[in-house]
């Protein structure tokens, strides 16, 4: 048992609220990268935050709180995508391609965006967390409840699919 002499221990609720208020943009960005629109991304963050707080009494270990909230948000995202009213990637991508003219660099960046979007959900999460959010592999493994080697191999596979080999890549 951890001893915090003189300092009152924070309640789960306080800790979870604090984490959400520190990380909400991170959750939002991640949600946005899946749903590609503001209202849905906001809904996801709000629902996730609500569920996390309402369930705060079920958090077993406060050390685990950050990972726990992140998991709830991820679940929220994936459940959102499963809803039938939600548009498929393909239709979204077609729309995007239509909106932006096929002009030079912009065009190939959209290709890359499409390639990223067409990765399996979990692979996309790993790439996003690793390279966009700069999370460490062990943290990603914790969030996904996977072992590090699985995360590593999925990351490797996805980067191959994206045909990217980053110069300063520490894992490959």
């Amino acid at each position: 048992m951890q001893v915090l002499s003189g300092r009152k221990k924070k309640s789960n609720e306080e800790i979870i609220e604090q984490i959400i208020m520190e990380q909400y943009n991170q959750y939002y960005r991640l949600a946005y990268s899946y749903v590609h629109n503001e209202p849905d991304a906001c809904d996801i963050v709000q629902n996730g935050a609500y569920k996390a707080l309402r369930a705060s009494h079920t958090l077993r270990s406060q050390e685990y709180a950050k990972t726990w909230v992140y998991r709830i948000i991820l679940n929220e995202i994936f459940n959102y995508l499963k809803q039938p009213r939600f548009e498929s990637y393909e239709s979204l991508q077609e729309k995007q391609a239509g909106e932006v003219g096929d002009v030079g660099d912009e065009c190939s960046r959209i290709d890359l965006q499409r390639a990223l979007d067409s990765l399996p959900e979990q692979e996309k999460v790993i790439v996003t967390m690793k390279y966009f959010e700069d999370k460490k592999l062990d943290e990603i493994a914790d969030i996904l409840n996977e072992n590090i080697s699985t995360v590593k191999s999925k990351l490797y596979r996805s980067m191959k699919k994206l045909r990217i080999q980053l110069a300063d890549d520490p894992i490959i």
Binding site: Y24, N25, Y28, Y32, A41, Q46, A49, S108, L166, A167
Partner: peptide
């Protein structure tokens, strides 16, 4: 690689507005 970096920049640009934050 350059494009990937540009994607990252685009990704990181997404932020909740003040109003959205208030709702949260």
């Amino acid at each position: 690689e350059e494009e990937f970096k540009a994607l990252k920049a685009g990704y990181l640009k997404q932020k909740m507005s003040q109003e959205q934050l208030r709702n949260l």
